[in-house]
Design a protein around this nucleic acid. Sequence first.
DNA 1: GACGAACCTGGCTT
DNA 2: AAAGCCAGGTTCG
Length: 295
Amino acid sequence: MVKPWFRLICKREQLQLLGTLNGGQSFRWKFIDLEGDKKWIGVFEKHVWILKQNDDEISYQVYGSDNDEKFYNNMLANYFQLNLDLKQHFAEWSSKDPIFKKAANQFYGIRILNQDLVENIFSFICSSNNNISRITSMVEKLALLFGEKICDIDGQVYFSFPPVEALAQDDVESVLKKEGFGYRAKYISESAKLITKEGVGRWLEELKTLPYEESRTKLITLTGIGPKVSDCICLMSLRHLQSIPVDTHVYQIARKFYMHSLPKRKTVTTKIYKDIGDHFRELYGPLAGFSFVLI
DNA sequence: GACGAACCTGGCTT
DNA sequence: AAAGCCAGGTTCG
C-alpha cells in the first residue's frame, strides 16, 4: 500500500537533516540519493520514516500505523525539538564565543534529537571505544534479532528497536557474542537484566523524573555506561540540555582552542571531564549541550 | 581516589 | 602479507 506524502513546514536554517541525522547522534538513518532524488530513511518510535527536505519544508512518508498529518507532524516536531529556536540560540552563543561564531557561519540547522530512551541506552553502550560503522551494524543487529518487524519497503525489512525485556532474556549474551559484539554483549545483557529486575517501567519512569546530576548517576549504575555515555543519554533522550558528553574529539578541541592548560592524556580523566563540561556550561549556559553539535 | 592498562572487533595503515 | 593502529570509553587492578 502506497503511503501519502505529508508536509511539515520547517525552514532549512532551523533544521538541516544532513548534519542532524548524519552526525553520530542516531545510528538508524540512511541517506539515499537515487539520481538526484535525495531522501533519508530511518526508524524511530516503531515507525519507518522517509524524509525529503527543501528550503521551506520536510515532506515525508510514514510506515507503521495509520494516522493523520497533524499527528505525525507532532511526532516529528518532538523528535527534532522544533520548539527550540535554533537561530536565536546560535546568535546568542555566537555573541559569547568567536570560535562558535565562525563554526556557526559554516554549519547551521544542526539540532540535538530527542530520541527514544531505551534505544539510546543500548546504542550508546555499543558506542564506547568503537567506530561509527560497527556501532551502526550492531544497532541494526539488535533490532533485527530482538525487535519487531514494522514493514517491508522495496524488499528491505525494517525492525523496531527491541524493548528492554527482549534484551534481558537468558540467551542474549551468547547470541550477541556470536554476532561479534565482543565484550559489549555482556554489558547489554547485564544492563537489561538489572533494569528488568527493578521493573522496566518503574526504572525508566523514575529516570525520566530525576534532575540531571541524579539521572546521570543512575545511568552509570548500568554496566558499560560511564560518564560520557551517560551524558549522551541525558542530552539526547532525557532532555537535560546542560549535559556535555566529553569524547576524545571534544577533549582535543577543548584543549586546542579553549583550555590551553588542560594536560595531555591518552584518556579523559574524571577531573578533565568535569572541567571541560563546566567550562562550556559556564560559556553557553543551561542549553550548553545543544551547542555541543558544533564543537 | 586517581591513574594506566587491557579490552572485542573490524577496517585501514604500515 | 602479517602486524600495528585506532575508533563517541569503561572496567579493572
